[in-house]
């Protein structure tokens, strides 16, 4: 009897935790997108006002307090041109963030062109990238609002359903 009770509790706790984890991914994605936009705004300021070379800016960004998203800009392979180094870092570090493929595609397209043109075109590129990310951010906020509670409850309810079914 006690064993069954323990099993039921563990089942509900497990599925509930899974629900909370999945719900948290939605919130984490929102946070990561906000941080990413902050970082790109920092990049924009460094380029516009200080004309700092990209390797220096990326090093500053990687050491910032913007969590795992900041690590996306940590270029480890110094033998590659900075663009290619950034692309590699983006691909390798992406799984550590809550960002999705759509954001990765935006960032890879950005990495393709960053540093390759004059100030005006760089500003255009950064504005365009930030605008795209802001759209994704707005959608991700809506998704989070809609889904977080749902997934949280669903986790617990699935657990409860399994308990009813098997115990």
């Amino acid at each position: 009897m006690y064993l069954k009770l323990l099993g039921a509790c563990l089942t509900v706790a497990g599925t509930g935790a899974l629900g909370f984890y999945l719900g948290n991914r939605y919130l984490q994605r929102v946070r990561d997108l906000e941080r990413l936009i902050n970082l790109l705004n920092f990049l924009k300021s460094e380029i516009r006002y200080k004309a700092t070379p990209l390797p220096e800016i990326f090093a500053k960004m990687a050491n910032s307090e913007e969590g795992t998203v900041a690590r996306l800009f940590e270029i480890k392979d110094k033998t590659l041109p900075v663009n290619q180094g950034l692309k590699k870092a983006l691909v390798e570090g992406f799984f550590q963030t809550a960002l999705l493929k759509r954001e990765q595609e935006i960032l890879l397209a950005f990495a393709e062109k960053i540093g390759m043109s004059d100030l005006r075109e760089q500003e255009n590129l950064l504005n365009y990238t930030c605008e795209q990310l802001k759209l994704v951010l707005a959608e991700s906020r809506q998704e989070a609002e809609k889904n977080v509670k749902l997934v949280n409850y669903l986790g617990v309810l699935v657990g409860a359903f399994l308990v009813l079914l098997f115990f």
Binding site: I47, N83, L119
Partner: peptide, 12 residues
């Protein structure tokens, strides 16, 4: 890219 450190704008 290596020559310009991928920072064309800085050498404008």
């Amino acid at each position: 890219q290596l020559i310009t450190a991928s920072s064309y704008y800085a050498l404008e």
